[in-house]
Nucleic acid binder design. Structure first.
Lengths: 219, 219, 219, 219
DNA sequence: AATGAATGAGCCTTCATTCAT
DNA sequence: GATGAATGAAGGCTCATTCAT
């Protein structure tokens, strides 16, 4: 038997909202793809916006779980960071999992609606805490001073960049250059760049020949 | 006498597009706010999309010039980088100029339309080249290998983060904490973080007491 | 209870289209006269053109049946022709049935759209075949050579003339003269003219005094 | 030097109106094709309808002349009739002369506007008189009784049929059959059909083999 | 005399939503 | 509880027309 209609509606709508934005998607299309009645959205969620926040909530409830899975205690902090970064990047590039969860969040963060603060508390802050914990392993000290925030932002920023600005990156580097930016390459770069910035690794070298030849030497 | 109607249309529309996105804004509203006729958009710009790209072009033409002003040749490369970063950040926070210029571009980059490649070529690429030149001063070598791109992206990413995710940052740090993130503080952090990452400066230290007390020691 | 809304829409639209043409009629006006919502046209017929072809189909389905009713096998061929001609003329003058059915078809024939070929096949060709059959009774021979077509056209042409050019005829003959053109008079004239043309009756004589006095001697 | 703007406007507009109908043609298109200003129509003709009636008048003034050119007095009446029929048909099929004059008239006759009665008096009635004169040569007698009118209508009707219903004829006969309907063939048929109908020629025979082989034996 | 920039009414269509079933 | 037919508001756009020049 097919899934619950409400669930189906949320999943279809989430995907479309993530893909094309709130305004560009019509309820007709959503209901049709979910094999539901046109009135189903209004019946189950009050109105279109109600469905949107339902998607947001669903996305956050799903994501929190697998982004925060505890890493082995004996893993080196640098390796934990790499996992964290890779985990965030993965959802965008991994075609096997629905990417709209993160997509939707990013959209919400870029231009916050009423539901934004909720998202931040339930989704973003846990992630930030997770990252803070990792950094605590790298640079023990006071946990939440401004400096810590900013370092965290610098790391997250790099991840988000590849997430959000993919098309611009493609245009800048050309299709061929862009193709070489595998998940591994990006993960490796951000990790090394960030570790070096906080004095926990060797600096990144533009002229490092190993980079071009064997992008992921630390895998 | 009031401004040229075409200009007024672009300014009003740009603001609204930047604020709410292309689809969420109607030409009727634009024309009303610009005290213009409903048909004015179609008359002057062909159609709504035409007005949109006109906004995009206007935004880009305003921005490009002042971001690329040549820096003194004798300025240290590290200082040039700081200026570059500060320049980008400034445009967001400077209240004397309409902020929709950047808003609109960010929107376009996040969900590129046909006009995106043009923006990239005319606005983004020159900026990238400007940054590459600075980096050439810091780390002489091949100019455009992949490593170079990624380092550039890591720097830009941090700047964009504070542009795009301002509301999230405020929510995470709380209003008080957020207030301390002056333009100087952010500039300083990104510059130091990036220089350290490429081995051109001391690592960033979360526990550095000087940071909290006197954020911008290099000013 | 009032008629089905779809029917009402077709009837109102058909009348207006027949009266003023496709382009000169707006959906607003149609819906208003049919006491329906503005969106009703698009909901029920897809778009305005959809309503138009619906009108066309309705018109054709109403007409086809009663024009083709089989005539008694023992009726003389000449009499069959008279019935055929009278049948065609009747539909124009019969006040009990909406005259827009024919109006619309004539319009379509004069300036054919995509739907024209359909009308021709479903409405015109059966009529042509019906006429051909009658002529086969008058002049046995090959059924569909070019000559046959042209004779048929000459007959139909006369009927259509009185349909289409009624106002011109009135102006030319004056109101009084026009009044004497009863259905019987016209039927009689066309029948006699056509029969004479193919050698199946006495020639028409402009000076025949019986005509003026007792127009329909064969009634 | 180029023609007068007013003339150019009338000619371009007449052609377009004749081709696509009044409503389907915009003043923009007219002015553009006439290399005139958008406001020229309103300036010279008051409004769009003013231009339309100007076209009508122009058409009538042109047509009257060459349709009524006096035929040689010694020409047999039957031959005069053939010339008359051919003259009317010609304007449609002859590509060297602008066909919109007649086109426009037919349009006006089919659905008369305010200008119709004027057209009838200035254009149609002279034509009718011309035809009546020819018929007087064929069947001397009272000039304007009803019978005369109807015979005239029967002749005109056939001509108009091929004029107006060209597309339907094409669909009915198929493209190949239609191609054989040259100007000569049609002229010949109508002439023979009409002469036979009034007892001034041999009847038309569907099975006449000469027709198929040599369509215009009387040429 | 003639222009062309600018107008506002109107066009068809699509939208999210509602209501009787 | 759930539907789908039907709604009215709003969408972007084109139109014939006008007015200052």
């Amino acid at each position: 038997m097919q899934e619950d209609i409400k669930t189906r509606l949320v999943e279809v709508a989430g995907e479309l909202f993530g893909e094309r934005g709130y305004e560009a998607v019509g309820v007709r299309e959503i209901c049709q793809q979910a094999t539901a009645n046109v009135a189903a959205v209004n019946y189950h969620f009050g109105d279109k916006r109600g469905l949107y926040v339902a998607c947001l909530r669903h996305a956050q409830s799903c994501r929190v779980d697998d982004l925060l899975l505890p890493l082995p205690a004996d893993m080196p902090a640098a390796e934990k960071l790499r996992h964290f970064i890779r985990g965030m990047l993965e959802s965008k590039l991994d075609p096997t999992r629905p990417q709209w969860h993160l997509e939707l969040m990013l959209r919400e963060m870029g231009r916050p609606t009423d539901a934004c603060s909720e998202i931040v508390e339930d989704y973003i802050r846990p992630m930030a805490e997770s990252l803070a914990e990792i950094m605590q392993g790298l640079l023990p000290g006071d946990q939440w001073n401004r400096q810590t925030w900013m370092i965290g932002f610098s790391i997250i920023a790099q991840v988000l960049f590849y997430h959000v600005n993919q098309p611009v990156v493609r245009l800048l580097m050309g299709p061929d250059g862009f193709e070489t930016l595998s998940l591994d390459v990006i993960t490796d770069h951000i990790t090394r760049f960030s570790l070096a910035a906080i004095g926990q690794g060797p600096p990144v070298d533009r002229n490092d020949p190993s980079d071009v030849a064997a992008p992921q030497s630390h895998k």
